[in-house]
């Protein structure tokens, strides 16, 4: 930065004494989720990595940086199936705040390389049959604790992880679409034809936490942006929302963070105070996505 150099030196050293620029909170939490608590100790597991300046190097798993593109499929597959220990991710959607800005849908589709008609996240216009009004409802995969889609998969291609996230391994999916039929929330979508940018994505190593590159003839759906969570970042949709609709967090901590305001609140309080509900609880699917009811007055 230019202006830093322009300032005179004595003032700088003086100011630095103030104990400034507090330890970076964001970068700090990133290390928490690497799966390796001690970032200085080498684990002995090496993976091939494409660094930000396009160099292919081999680094220790413990020294991975968020920007690195891992080139090691088997490592990514193993990591993707294991999930992040000690976490149970949940989302809270505040319907009263949704104004159908659709920034979430856009961010989602670009992150997951989806065609315009494919939705991991779909903002629906819902009719209220009693009040004759309508409201906007973003609908993602509910990451059910009793997932009907996972029950029916014949090959373990879709599975639930220890952190509660339901993922798809599109290296294994046989494209039978039983999961699509079984999901009562219509949360799944299928690559009926060659996926978007398939020629450009040909060399990218498949990461099931992002489910990119997409593959023809396989199922895809919301992954709670598991790739982001690993780095302590909020899901793509959550941080893209301009209206503060989404909260995301860890049920074990009882804390959820709003994607727009970054305010972190107690999950249990938020749900209780706002009469939260889940979608079709009578089906017994036990979703991990909670909804706060839409505003009463607005049509």
């Amino acid at each position: 930065m230019n202006m830093a150099n322009k300032n005179d030196k004595s003032r700088r050293s003086f100011l630095q004494k103030l104990g400034i620029a507090g330890a970076s909170t964001v970068a700090g939490s990133a290390l928490l989720l690497q799966g390796c608590s001690d970032s200085n100790k080498a684990s002995g597991n090496k993976v091939k990595v494409l660094t930000a300046d396009n160099k292919l190097v081999e680094v220790d798993v413990a020294h991975l940086k968020p920007g690195d593109k891992i080139q090691d499929l088997s490592y990514l597959q193993k990591r993707g199936r294991e999930g992040i220990p000690g976490k149970k991710f949940v989302m809270v959607v505040d319907l009263a705040k949704c104004k159908n800005a659709r920034k979430c849908m856009k961010a989602c589709q670009s992150a997951h390389q989806l065609k315009p008609e494919m939705h991991h996240l779909n903002v629906l216009e819902m009719e209220d049959p009693v009040k004759k009004t309508s409201y906007w409802m973003p609908k993602t995969c509910q990451h059910c604790d009793n997932p009907p889609c996972v029950s029916v998969c014949p090959v373990d291609a879709t599975f639930k992880r220890q952190d509660g996230i339901v993922l798809i391994d599109n290296e294994r999916c046989i494209g039978c679409r039983f999961c699509v039929a079984a999901c009562p929330y219509s949360a799944r979508t299928f690559n009926w034809t060659e996926p978007k940018n398939s020629d450009k994505m040909a060399d990218v190593t498949y990461d099931m936490e992002l489910n990119v590159p997409q593959k023809k003839g396989t199922v895809t759906k919301c992954a709670f942006s598991a790739d982001q969570l690993r780095h302590g970042k909020l899901p793509y949709c959550v941080s893209a929302c301009p209206n503060g609709v989404y909260y995301f967090g860890d049920q074990n901590e009882d804390l959820v963070t709003n994607g727009t305001t970054k305010k972190t609140v107690r999950l249990s309080h938020l749900l209780e105070e706002n009469a939260a509900y889940t979608l079709m609880p009578e089906l017994g699917t036990k979703p991990s996505v909670y909804y706060l009811p839409p505003r009463e007055s607005e049509g």
Binding site: I174, R177, F190, T218
Partner: peptide, 13 residues
């Protein structure tokens, strides 16, 4: 099947 080439997965997995 979307991926008939992966039919064997049914027997493997």
């Amino acid at each position: 099947m979307g991926r008939p080439d992966r039919l064997l997965n049914v027997f493997i997995h």
